[in-house]
Nucleic acid binder design. Structure first.
Lengths: 214, 214
DNA sequence: AAACTTCATGAACGACCGTTAGGTTATTGA
DNA sequence: TCAATAACCTAACGGTCGTTCATGAAGTTT
């Protein structure tokens, strides 16, 4: 037997996913406050009230998207870093994975980044703390590289800001149908980042393929 | 005689400025859509209806802020570039001025950048075109530097994206009460940018003070 | 087959939104 | 002195917002 009868869908968990997918698209395109629950419902093909069966509130949809994105980003980058031994190799792997991940999940990345201020105090502070911890990871890799003599820059904190900004920004302009493939873009950013840190050219991590150890 | 009597202010052009100042603060803090005309009016110490004596609509307040910012940014950077002769010198000057300007006018910069989507089609396309032209200026300086042999990178277009993202992002984290002065931050960014382009260290434009010719 | 749970519906709630109509007051120019 | 104008007010408009309520069909458990 099928699942539809006289009334609408009855889809179970698939509805939750449809709501999330609709929300991330709309939040990314118009912004959180410019998107109404009715628009999300319409895009997910349910009535507005049905959303409240799956989410407590509009804000909960947003925090779910953001938490999921951070979970997966952290896991992906930490795994990439763990496969490398030297500071330049680790940073190169982190940058490469960060860029690829932001290209593959550009909408989620953009929403996570740009809608922090839409959150109320508690979830906002939580997300800021997570983002700060993530940033600290990069700063420590840079500091390790300075200590080991691989990098020569004056201010690791500012460098970490700058690096994450340029790499995160890939989510703003990357076009899957564009001339450059995502791993090319990632490789260029590794090149730019290592160059900006004064790393000796071609030292560690300036690789093409993935999962490679130099 | 003073200017206040029984009823409220009667301030003339000063009211317009109060409205703009209130709007830029609120737009930067909460976002365009999360800010109501009543909140702007309250912060500017007028009644909501008074805003419409100075602005046609809420959107016109936003476009005014964005246009003003772009006007002043372009003027400042173009002047800084005009004082330099070589590609590395020009790019260094542009980066330095861009960073300083984004630090000094962080709220305006943030609103101009992040609220493009809030605009309706026509003003949005206008602003995007201006931003693209600004970006092109940077890309051409990079290409000139590659051609002259001062820079060694594989992709000037991606480099221009990355550079502008990291420099624009200063508006997101710069704190006037922080440990670093704005011209220090600018100098660090010049260092990072020239490094990422593979410029020979200390070549051209790595200066400290302003209005200096090297 | 009866009771319960899950998933969704249609209709409505009060609050707030951007904007406007129309009146009032202070200042200016003839 | 007096009309004209600029600057601002109070009040309200229609519309949309996030959310809730009451209801009920379908599926599951007992």
């Amino acid at each position: 037997m099928a699942e539809t009868k006289t009334t609408g869908a009855r889809r179970g968990e698939a509805t939750r996913e449809a709501i999330e997918a609709a929300a991330v698209d709309l939040f990314a395109e118009r912004g959180y406050h410019a998107t109404s629950m009715r628009e999300i419902a319409s895009a997910a093909k349910v009535q507005p009230a049905a959303i409240y069966h799956w989410f407590d509130s509009k804000e909960k949809i947003l925090t779910r998207l953001q938490d999921d994105f951070m979970d997966r980003l952290e896991a992906a980058v930490e795994e990439a870093v763990a496969a490398e031994a030297t500071p330049p190799g680790q940073l190169a792997a982190a940058v490469r994975e960060h860029v690829v991940f932001h290209g593959l999940h550009a909408r989620e990345a953009f929403v996570t980044d740009s809608e922090i201020r839409a959150l109320s105090t508690r979830p906002r502070n939580r997300l800021i703390a997570r983002r700060d911890a993530y940033q600290t990871m990069f700063r420590q890799m840079i500091e390790a590289g300075v200590k080991s003599g691989d990098f020569t820059i004056s201010n690791p904190a500012v460098a970490s800001y700058a690096i994450l900004l340029e790499c995160t920004g890939v989510a703003l302009w990357y076009d899957p149908k564009g001339a450059l493939a995502l791993d090319e873009i990632a490789a260029i950013h590794v090149e730019l980042v290592l160059g900006s840190l004064g790393a000796a050219p071609k030292v560690a991590g300036r690789t093409g393929a993935r999962k490679e150890r130099r």
